[in-house]
Each structure stands twice: as structure tokens, then as C-alpha cells.
Amino acid sequence: MTDLYAGGAAEANRTRAHWALTALEAFGAETGQNYTDGTLDVDEDVLRELGGDLLADLFHLAHLNDCTPELLINAGLMHFEAELDEERAEENEEVTD
């Protein structure tokens, strides 16, 4: 695997978004919700429906494993915020250089 941060924090976050899109496309293929076109430009309604359905099913999986949905939400939000903070810090460095 290559260095996720080789292109900087913003590019790392775009890569993460692409991984999420890949997961949504695989989920959509399973459920018949083939609404994406392979780009990161996803309509808000599609993202809400497909992403919401995927989250709900992750919550079912969590429930079956004695884990609360809130645990998944909190962990995901913590990672998301930390990754955005890295991007912002990098942007601030570029401004001050």
C-alpha cells in the first residue's frame, strides 16, 4: 500500500471518500440501489437514501454483536473530525509559509 498522506491530508480525505463510494456502490449493487456514477459527485437525495440504508444495516450488525449504533457513530465522527483537523492544519501551514 502506498502512503495515504503522500499527496497531503486533503488528498488523503478524497481517497477516504472514494473508499466510502466504493462501499456504497457495492451495497447498492446488493440492494438494487444502483444510483451512483462512479464519481464523488453524489446527489444529496441519493447519499441520504443509500448512505442511510447502509448505516441502518451497520446498526443491525452492531446490534447483533452487542454494540450500540451510538458507538459506531461516535467512533466515525471522531475519526472524521480528526482527519478534517489534519487537512485544516495543513492548509494553515501553507498560508503561513
Results as ranks from 00 to 15, higher is better:
M78D: 07
L72Y: 01
A10L: 07
D53K: 12
G32D: 04
D66Q: 13
G32S: 09
L40F: 05
A26R: 14
E70T: 11
D41S: 14
A6Y: 03
N92P: 00
L58Y: 14
I73G: 00
L64Q: 12
A29R: 07
L55M: 13
A20E: 09
L4R: 15
E49A: 03
L84Q: 08
T15S: 11
W19M: 11
A82L: 14
G52E: 03
A12Q: 08
M1S: 12
G8V: 02
A12D: 07
H79V: 03
E90I: 05
E94Q: 12
D37T: 13
E86L: 13
H63F: 10
R14E: 09
D85A: 11
E91G: 06
D66V: 10
A9M: 04
L54A: 10
A62G: 06
E87H: 07
N92I: 02
A82D: 12
E86Q: 05
L40C: 09
E91M: 14
N92F: 12
L50Y: 02
T39N: 13
A20R: 11
T2Q: 08
A6I: 09
L40T: 03
A29K: 11
I73C: 01
V95F: 15
L84K: 08
L4D: 11
V42H: 01
G7Y: 01
T68H: 09
T68K: 15
H18C: 01
D85N: 07
